[in-house]
Simulated scan of single mutants.
Amino acid sequence: MQARPQTRYSDEQLAEFKAIIDARLAEARKQLQFYQDQLAEHTNSEEGKVRGLDDGTGTMTNEETHRLANRQQQLIQHLENALLRIQNKVYGICRVTGELISPERLRIVPHTTLSIHAKQNR
């Protein structure tokens, strides 16, 4: 008799992935707070006030910080979605192939929804 292929991760494995995601989420939120503090500080400083058209450095820095903050917000959303998939016990299932994503990939990119094979064939 052949063993059935695993169709989902065990509760123990899901707990391991949840711990990884929780740690990444805490770090991402901390980083987002840093960017938000930087933006607030720049806005409230004399340098943040309009000084003329000849100095775009402050604007470029501000735009870059906004970009980084937005990227962190997206990462946080992806990680929160991964926690929902864990809660629903569908975490780690490739949305293209329906097969389990390798645990190694999930440890590196815990919010992924694609296996390496599916990602390479996109």
Rank of each mutant, 00 (worst) to 15 (best):
residue 3 A to C: 01
residue 3 A to H: 01
residue 3 A to R: 00
residue 4 R to L: 14
residue 6 Q to K: 14
residue 6 Q to P: 02
residue 7 T to L: 10
residue 8 R to N: 00
residue 10 S to I: 01
residue 10 S to E: 00
residue 11 D to C: 08
residue 12 E to V: 08
residue 13 Q to A: 07
residue 13 Q to H: 03
residue 14 L to H: 03
residue 15 A to N: 04
residue 16 E to K: 10
residue 16 E to Q: 13
residue 16 E to A: 09
residue 18 K to F: 03
residue 18 K to D: 08
residue 19 A to G: 14
residue 20 I to D: 04
residue 20 I to A: 10
residue 21 I to E: 00
residue 21 I to M: 12
residue 21 I to W: 04
residue 21 I to K: 05
residue 23 A to P: 03
residue 23 A to Q: 10
residue 23 A to D: 06
residue 23 A to F: 10
residue 23 A to E: 10
residue 23 A to V: 11
residue 23 A to I: 11
residue 24 R to H: 10
residue 25 L to V: 10
residue 25 L to S: 12
residue 26 A to K: 11
residue 26 A to N: 03
residue 27 E to W: 07
residue 30 K to R: 12
residue 31 Q to D: 06
residue 32 L to S: 03
residue 33 Q to W: 03
residue 33 Q to Y: 03
residue 34 F to M: 05
residue 34 F to I: 07
residue 34 F to V: 09
residue 34 F to K: 11
residue 35 Y to D: 02
residue 35 Y to I: 02
residue 36 Q to D: 12
residue 38 Q to Y: 05
residue 39 L to E: 06
residue 39 L to S: 02
residue 40 A to S: 05
residue 40 A to E: 09
residue 40 A to V: 06
residue 41 E to G: 07
residue 41 E to A: 14
residue 42 H to K: 02
residue 46 E to V: 10
residue 48 G to F: 03
residue 49 K to V: 01
residue 49 K to Q: 09
residue 51 R to F: 06
residue 52 G to A: 02
residue 53 L to D: 15
residue 54 D to M: 09
residue 55 D to V: 08
residue 56 G to N: 08
residue 59 T to D: 15
residue 60 M to R: 07
residue 60 M to L: 07
residue 61 T to Q: 11
residue 61 T to M: 11
residue 61 T to G: 06
residue 64 E to V: 11
residue 65 T to M: 04
residue 65 T to S: 04
residue 66 H to D: 09
residue 67 R to L: 09
residue 68 L to K: 05
residue 68 L to P: 00
residue 68 L to H: 01
residue 69 A to S: 13
residue 70 N to A: 09
residue 70 N to Y: 02
residue 71 R to V: 01
residue 71 R to C: 06
residue 71 R to Q: 09
residue 71 R to I: 02
residue 72 Q to I: 00
residue 73 Q to P: 10
residue 73 Q to N: 09
residue 74 Q to S: 04
residue 76 I to S: 00
residue 77 Q to L: 08
residue 78 H to K: 05
residue 81 N to A: 14
residue 82 A to H: 00
residue 82 A to K: 00
residue 84 L to T: 04
residue 85 R to N: 01
residue 86 I to L: 05
residue 88 N to A: 13
residue 89 K to E: 13
residue 91 Y to S: 00
residue 91 Y to F: 14
residue 91 Y to G: 01
residue 92 G to W: 08
residue 94 C to M: 09
residue 94 C to Y: 09
residue 94 C to R: 04
residue 96 V to A: 13
residue 96 V to P: 09
residue 96 V to F: 12
residue 96 V to Q: 12
residue 97 T to W: 14
residue 97 T to P: 10
residue 98 G to S: 13
residue 98 G to V: 12
residue 98 G to R: 15
residue 98 G to N: 06
residue 99 E to F: 08
residue 99 E to I: 06
residue 99 E to S: 11
residue 99 E to C: 08
residue 100 L to V: 15
residue 101 I to G: 13
residue 103 P to T: 15
residue 105 R to I: 15
residue 105 R to A: 15
residue 105 R to S: 08
residue 106 L to Y: 11
residue 107 R to E: 05
residue 108 I to L: 15
residue 108 I to E: 08
residue 108 I to W: 11
residue 109 V to H: 12
residue 110 P to K: 10
residue 112 T to W: 06
residue 114 L to T: 09
residue 115 S to F: 04
residue 115 S to W: 05
residue 116 I to N: 05
residue 118 A to S: 15
residue 118 A to L: 01
residue 119 K to Q: 15
residue 119 K to G: 08
residue 120 Q to V: 14
residue 120 Q to A: 15
residue 120 Q to T: 13
residue 121 N to M: 06
residue 122 R to E: 14
residue 122 R to H: 08
